[in-house]
């Protein structure tokens, strides 16, 4: 189908975009990469009167490392740029390893990091990575700027903490400590589809080799990415060996009520959780880096 008629405006500056957002309010949608918005418009699930196109605002795209060691990614940065970035590979290997799982090349060439996060599909990779890394999402409006923790940003299926007048402008990932390891895995019907279930994990060990801080995030399972606290607790303090890992991963479905849809039943997702948690942790804990 074809999108319903709308008017298109492409401001040259962030300030103009923010003013337009106030002016048009609920009648407008923000166009970044369009890889989720345009299908939704083609299916007439969204029929905005205005599209505020951010693509002329060059300052919204870019990848840089701050003096603090944080990795800062502009909201309009395309997936392909993140995927190919040597800085990202160094400064956040979990994010780098998640990128090839995001849809397909042609989608990654247009789709943006900010667009994916704001769309907040519960089966998307980047929200899970942000949650695992305690990323900060920087929002801006005519009222000013504020930082939102990833844990508070994702509110439910396609729902975020962003106000109607706010734009996501930047994502900041805390510095990646030496020795932190990661794992990333997902199951989908076809490579590039949204995940039926996926796991993003990071693990740190202390000097004695015991597991310290562990982050295990599941996506595709409930209405938003979710930390598997029972797995994290069970893993902490262990030697991170195969037995410890298997035992900890066994708690992956604890306290969760997985959703069911036309891709998979709730039972299937419950079965996938411990298996994928174990595999992701095995990636993180195997002696040699992949």
């Amino acid at each position: 189908m074809k999108p319903a008629p709308f008017d298109h405006v492409a401001p040259a500056t962030l300030e103009e975009a923010l003013a337009l957002l106030v002016e048009h309010g609920e009648n407008a949608k923000v166009l970044a990469g369009g890889q989720s918005l345009v299908p939704v418009m083609a299916l007439r699930l969204a029929t905005p009167a205005w599209l505020i196109d951010l693509n002329r605002i060059a300052s919204l795209a870019g990848i840089r490392q701050l003096d603090t060691g944080e990795l800062a990614i502009g909201a309009l940065t395309r997936h392909a740029a993140v995927e190919r970035s040597e800085l990202v590979a160094r400064a956040n290997p979990l994010l780098a390893s998640a990128m090839p799982w995001v849809a397909h090349t042609a989608i990654r060439n247009r789709g943006t990091v900010g667009g994916s996060l704001v769309h907040a599909d519960p089966a998307a990779e980047l929200p899970a990575v942000c949650l695992a890394c305690d990323a900060t999402l920087v929002a801006q409006s005519v009222r000013g700027r504020r930082a939102i923790a990833a844990a508070a940003f994702f509110r439910g299926m396609f729902e975020t903490a962003l106000g109607a007048d706010e734009l996501l402008v930047e994502i900041r990932f805390p510095a990646w400590p030496d020795g932190r390891r990661h794992g990333f895995i997902e199951i989908a019907r076809r490579h590039g589809d949204f995940a039926i279930c996926g796991i993003a994990a990071t693990v740190e060990r202390d000097r004695a080799g015991r597991v310290g801080d562990a982050r295990v995030v599941a996506f595709g399972v409930v209405d938003r990415p979710v930390r598997l606290a029972a797995v994290e607790r069970a893993l902490a303090g262990t030697d991170g060996g195969e037995d410890a890992l298997r035992s900890a991963a066994g708690a992956a479905a604890d306290g969760l009520t997985p959703r069911a849809d036309h891709h998979a039943s709730a039972e299937y997702r419950s079965e996938l959780l411990p298996v994928l948690a174990r595999r992701a942790l095995a990636q993180a804990l195997t002696p040699r880096r992949r």
Binding site: H8, Q35, V38, P39, A42, A106, R110
Partner: peptide
Amino acid sequence: CEHGVCGACTVLLDGAPVRSCLMFAVQ
């Protein structure tokens, strides 16, 4: 498909493949 799934409409934008059903001509 007109919603970005099938890839039949793929063209090269500055050399990179993109879905031409997921871009508006004005862009």
